[in-house]
């Protein structure tokens, strides 16, 4: 056995190991621990759902996330105010009937701002995962499937990406590209593709070497057939798990960036923006930091529960 810094308990299998420090994992290898799952068709889905349902925490997490999605996408109608509406006379009030979460220094409604933050968090995190996944999966798949020099070259690049502390790379990228919603998820996507590439490549390699794939090839199946029939079903599970941990990691990265003044551009709210602005006024007006922190923490917890649930189904354990 060769020593490796990745151990059981790390990788996407370790909830929060990478989340807790506030950025996408640096150096954790998501390809660990994933084995060939059994996945196929609607029947498989239904079976997975039955297994998922047994995990009460995961179901609660899922319910919370669905609620968050609902809020996020109906914020324009559900939120009591617009996130930019200022009302100086009512500045810095604590919770009341008009303003459940109180108001900030310009009299903006904190509840509304928290709601719109959820939307931005979802856009940033899912957007970044999509970008990272699309780039990573494509590169990993091509590299794993064709092998040879291409594979070696790609893996060197991936190694270098892993060597670069990702949070630092994120800061440098945002400095180079300028702040904003678009940059934020592109930058987070760029810093996370290497993990997905490694994951997908590892899955494809292990599938390729399986006897049944060899057999299929011997029987004359084409590449397309092999990919569709054998490889794709096998990598879907691990990818779902990786995504379920990538999304909260994206949210965290965004909020961490906001904390150092490089996140979304105010007045656009994000949990990170709200927390860092609230922190400045924690002494006199603790409600400014309390509510966003609470919602944000709950969201991360919910995603972790769901991720754990998914891992139980698709992981080795």
């Amino acid at each position: 056995m060769s020593p490796s810094t990745t151990t059981p308990g790390q990788g996407p299998g370790a909830p929060g190991a990478d989340l807790a420090s506030g950025f996408p994992a640096a150096g954790s290898d998501p390809s660990d621990e994933m084995s060939v799952p059994q996945y196929g068709g609607m029947a498989g889905l239904r079976r997975d759902w039955r297994r998922f349902r047994r995990n009460k925490l995961a179901v609660a997490g899922l319910a919370y996330i669905l609620f968050l999605f609902f809020i996020a996408f109906t914020a324009d109608w559900v939120a009591p105010y617009h996130y930019e509406t200022t009302n100086p006379p009512a500045a810095l009030e604590s919770s009341s009937v008009q303003h459940w979460f109180g108001t900030d220094e310009l009299g903006r409604d904190m509840l509304s701002r928290v709601m719109y933050s959820a939307r931005n968090a979802i856009v940033v995190s899912f957007g970044s995962v999509l970008i990272g996944l699309a780039v990573g999966a494509f590169i990993g798949a091509v590299s794993g499937f064709y092998g040879g020099i291409l594979d070696i070259a790609v893996m060197r690049v991936v190694d270098i990406m892993f060597a670069f502390p990702q949070f630092l790379l994120l800061i440098i990228l945002v400095t180079a590209m300028g702040r904003g919603l678009g940059t934020m998820f592109v930058a987070i996507g760029i810093t996370s593709w290497a993990g997905y590439a490694r994951l997908v490549r590892g899955q494809i390699l292990s599938a390729k070497n399986n006897d049944y794939v060899e057999a299929a090839r011997c029987l004359g199946s084409g590449n397309g057939h092999i990919i569709r029939k054998y490889i794709l079903p096998n990598i879907v599970g691990p990818i779902i798990v990786a995504v379920s941990f990538g999304v909260p990691a994206g949210m965290l990265a965004e909020s961490a960036m906001s904390l150092i003044g490089m996140g979304l551009r105010p007045p656009m709210p994000s949990w990170g923006n709200l927390i860092s602005a609230g922190m400045m006024q924690m002494y006199g007006f603790p409600h400014l930091v309390l509510w966003p922190s609470l919602t944000f923490g709950l969201t991360l917890l919910a995603f972790t529960f769901v991720g754990d649930g998914l891992r139980e189904i698709y992981g080795k354990e």
Partner: peptide, 28 residues
């Protein structure tokens, strides 16, 4: 970027003078 936490430190007895920078601190 964090000038405004001064007032906390002032209240906590860590500073004898504190600049009041943000609207929130001023209000407080």
């Amino acid at each position: 970027s964090s000038q405004s936490v001064q007032i906390q430190q002032y209240e906590a007895g860590e500073l004898d003078v504190a600049h009041v920078m943000t609207l929130g601190d001023y209000a407080y």
